[in-house]
Amino acid sequence: MRLILCFFAVLFLSSCFEIIEDIRFQANYSGTYKVTINMSASKVQINSYMKLDSVFGSHVPKKPEIEKEIQRKENLLKAHKGIKNVLITRDYVSFIFTVKFDFDNLNSFKEAHSILTSDKKTTNDFFPFSQSGNSFNRKDKLQTTAKDMAKKKKEYAALFTQSTYTSIIHFPKEINTCSNKNCKLSKDKKNMFVSSSLENLVNDPNYLNTQIIFK
């Protein structure tokens, strides 16, 4: 019976999720990082997918596997120098996961970012944020997982178009210029907001790249 329900769920529903990165920098580039992966709009499909071994040829992890990996990352983050107040929340009913921590400086943030984005086998030294003088830069590159998904564009077409990535960065000082026309600035010009569908990010890896010059 469950299989029938799964079948109907997969048949009648299309899935999507949102990723929200919220970074709050202090003047010395210490700060707080919070990333939220919200799949609640697709909770019915996710429940169905989790009963399957694979979807579109990709392995679907089971809850214990996910927990094990979360626990591993949490331990690594907690043990890392320069990272404090690590908090990982998970909600397996609505499928909302958040990771939040404070970092002492950009270097600590880079290492924590590497822990979060690398898998068990490879190390990922890539870090999109850099700072020099009165400017702040973001330069992204397509991550391996996204590349794999991009190869299966047809299967993931609906997922790409309906899922979103949002990046919010709060600075302690006013932004003078922002090179990326996709970025929006708050009224007080201290906060930067950019949001896009995954489709845009896969098609244009430079979509998020920006250089910010402060006043």
Binding site: E18, I20, D22, T36, N38, S40, A41, K43, V44, S94, I96, I168, H170, S186, K187, D188, K190, N191, M192, F193
Partner: peptide, 15 residues
């Protein structure tokens, strides 16, 4: 109708 959670943002992009 099935509920789901999402986010709204204020003018300073606090969610």
């Amino acid at each position: 109708n099935i509920s789901y959670t999402t986010y709204d943002y204020d003018e300073d992009y606090n969610s």
